[in-house]
């Protein structure tokens, strides 16, 4: 289960600035290689897809394998084209997508 998606942006930015977008979500990122106490394999359950949009337009995308740590953290950059809202989507192995949004405050 994914929980508590977070997006961290600079407090303010100007058009043309290159800003860093930091993202974090709570998720176990179960590799599928582990066994429970009874020796039964624990099925793989990871966030495998990450999509970032700004004003509805895709700006960054990633695919994760089980080699990404629990509670996946990801930071990337964007040149600010104008005012708008970020929309970040994390999709897990159950096909469940968790979405978070954050408006960018311009100076």
């Amino acid at each position: 289960m994914a929980a508590n998606p977070r997006i961290k942006l600079p407090e303010t930015a100007a058009i043309g600035d290159v800003i860093e977008i930091k993202t974090l979500i709570t998720h176990v990122m179960e590799t599928g290689n582990r066994h429970d106490k009874t020796g039964k394999p624990i099925p793989r359950d990871i966030i495998h897809a990450f999509v970032a949009k700004f004003e509805g337009k895709e700006i960054f995308r990633a695919e994760f394998g089980p080699g990404i740590s629990a509670n996946p953290y990801l930071a990337f950059h964007m040149r600010v084209p104008g005012p708008g809202v970020f929309e970040i989507a994390w999709t897990d192995d159950h096909g469940v997508t968790t979405v978070a949004t954050a408006p960018l405050k311009l100076v």
Binding site: R61, A62, F64, G65, G67, I68
Partner: peptide
């Protein structure tokens, strides 16, 4: 690692800099 492919990040000119940060398992 048991799964060799850890991640792929897709970029475009809108990103302005080709720089990503994350946390991985080894």
């Amino acid at each position: 690692n048991p799964a060799a492919h850890v991640a792929t990040f897709h970029l475009s000119p809108v990103n302005a800099v080709a720089r990503v940060q994350s946390r991985m398992r080894l």
